[in-house]
Structures are given as C-alpha cells and as structure tokens.
Computed example of a mutant assay.
Amino acid sequence: MKQLTFENYQKQTSFTELCGHRIAHWQSLNFNKDENKDVILFIHGFPSAAWDWHFQWKHLAGQYRLLSVDLLGFGLSDKPTKHQYSLLEQADIVQALLRKKGVKQYHILAHDYGDSVAQELLSRQDDIHSAAQILSICFLNGGLFASHHRPLFTQKLLKGRLGGLASHFMNKANLARGFNKIFAANSQPNTHEIDTLWQLIEHNNGKKVLPKLLSYIDERNQHGKRWVQSMVSTVVPLYFINGVHDPISGQHMLDHYIDIIPNAKTTALDVGHYPQLEAPQDVLNLYRDFLTEVIE
C-alpha cells in the first residue's frame, strides 16, 4: 500500500484563520462542485494528524465530499506554547471551518482524541440551532468513556509535573516503542508511518505542547457524563469500529459501549489502537457499508 509522504501532505494543505489560530485543513477536489453529495468530516487522534486518514480519503473522495483538519496543536496547524488547550475549543474550530465551507449537514469519522471532539459536537447538536447538523458518527478506538480509558505510562508522564522535561527528551525511538505497544502484534507500524508521524509531531516545535494537549484526559472526566447522555439519547446513527488488541481503548471499551449504548452497532477488528492504519481496507469497507445504510 503506497502511503502519503509528509512532503505531499504539506503540498496539499490549505490554511485558514479559525478562532484566532492558523489551522491546516484539506478538502476533496469535488468539494465545491458536487453539492448534492454528502460531506464527511475526518477528526484525528492524539498525537497525530489528519494524515492518519490518507487511505480512506483516497478511496472515498469520488463518492463523497471530504473535509479534514489538523486540530490546534497538531500536525501542520498552529502550536502555541502558552495556551490552555481544550476539546471544547477544538469543537469551536471545527464548527468555524464548517461554517466557512458552507456545510449544513455532515457525517463524522473520528478516532481517539477526535472521538471526544465528536462527542462534544454531538452534545451541541440540539443546543446551537445555527450549527451544521450531524448525519452520523463513526468512532474508532478512543476514550468514549473516561472510566474505561487506560492511558499509557508515557501519557501519564507527559501529563504530570515532569511533562515538560519528558517532552524535551522525547524522540522518534520513544514514539516507535509507544506505537509498537498500541498496535497489534500482527499489524505493527512500518518505518514510513513512524517517520511521518514523528515529522508531524516535531513540526512547529510541537513536542513542547504535548503535555498541554493531554489536558483532554481531565476534560473527559469533566464532560463525560454529558457526552454519554447525548450518545444514549441521540437519534443520530452511531457506529463503533474497535481494534480489540488496543491496551488503551480496546475490548474493554467495546464491551462497555455495548452495555451503555442502546442498539449498539459495533464491529471488532483483530488490530490495535489505529484501525485506520493497521487495517485500512477493513475500515474503508465497514465505513462504506455504514454510510450506505445511513444514507438509504
């Protein structure tokens, strides 16, 4: 499978001032032409970027209008060092991008940190009548329920008092070791994936902001009850594709999702924390089938 290079990812980028920050985003070539086609918004996880979706993007681009974004502090977007990062602000940025693009209705495909942004957007669905309406949400592995999220030791270290020091000494070898733990044994990350993800983290001096981005763990505890209530009560179709060998949010998160969400639609995959990279074709096929059901 040919993967998108960091250089080509940069070349395809657009930048827009959103909520006071320079935010990197992408749209499919047909975005402004085929207004009769449904819009899909991709929301990435921590600590990576919209690059994660390159395989699914390539194969969905002809059938749908696609939009993705590097959230504040990630990828090619601004990474202010003296900033209090918040999932709520990330949701504001997403909504600002949707308004700028004139999107009235859209589907969400989200992963990890992006799951929490999607949950916040869903909770706002009935509160902000002028906002674009969510047509469906597909979650990949992430901390949908704060009580069942199991952060790695590295994440705990970065989030703690020594976070600044830990981030200073973080390097590509550390990243590789961490990703080897969260990918399944039979779907380990390749050199190109680690190299690209490391370039995305380092870009704009991004290592410095990693500790501050990890405030999302506290926000999940703070807003989790409201988010889960929205998921339980919503009429928006929800789907959870879960890599069950993920130590952070694998089988245990899937089991709890099935217990909590009425008529839960789920699929278990024999991979780890990054299904879109570990089993890209499976995720593409499953998501296409889900969209077909929702749209019909």
Rank of each mutant, 00 (worst) to 15 (best):
F42Y: 14
F42K: 04
I43R: 01
H44L: 12
G45L: 12
F46C: 08
F46E: 10
P47Q: 13
P47V: 11
S48G: 12
S48I: 13
S48C: 11
A49D: 06
A50I: 06
A50N: 13
W51G: 05
W51I: 08
D52L: 13
D52I: 14
D52P: 08
W53Y: 15
W53I: 00
W53D: 03
W53H: 08
F55S: 07
F55D: 04
F55Q: 09
Q56Y: 04
Q56L: 12
W57H: 06
W57V: 00
W57R: 01
W57S: 02
K58R: 14
K58Q: 15
H59L: 05
L60M: 12
L60W: 12
L60A: 09
A61I: 00
A61G: 10
A61E: 15
A61K: 14
G62Q: 10
Q63T: 12
Q63H: 09
Q63R: 14
Y64D: 11
Y64H: 14
Y64W: 09
R65E: 14
R65P: 13
R65V: 07
R65K: 08
L66V: 03
L66S: 12
L67P: 05
L67T: 07
V69G: 00
V69K: 00
D70T: 06
L71D: 01
L72E: 03
G73I: 03
G75P: 11
G75H: 10
G75L: 11
L76V: 07
L76K: 03
L76H: 07
S77Q: 07
D78Y: 11
K79M: 03
P80C: 05
P80E: 08
P80H: 06
P80V: 05
P80N: 07
T81K: 12
K82W: 04
K82I: 03
K82M: 08
H83W: 09
Q84R: 09
Y85Q: 02
S86F: 01
L87H: 01
L87N: 04
L87I: 11
L88T: 09
L88I: 10
L88K: 14
L88F: 09
L88E: 15
E89W: 03
E89F: 02
Q90K: 10
Q90R: 05
Q90N: 13
A91M: 03
A91D: 01
A91T: 00
D92F: 02
D92L: 04
D92E: 13
D92S: 10
I93S: 01
I93K: 01
V94D: 02
V94H: 01
Q95G: 06
A96Y: 02
A96W: 02
L97E: 03
L97W: 00
L97F: 00
L97T: 01
L97A: 05
L97S: 02
L98T: 06
L98E: 08
R99T: 08
R99V: 08
K100N: 11
K101Y: 14
K101M: 12
K101T: 09
K101P: 10
G102I: 02
G102W: 04
V103L: 06
K104R: 15
K104L: 15
K104E: 15
Q105H: 12
Q105P: 08
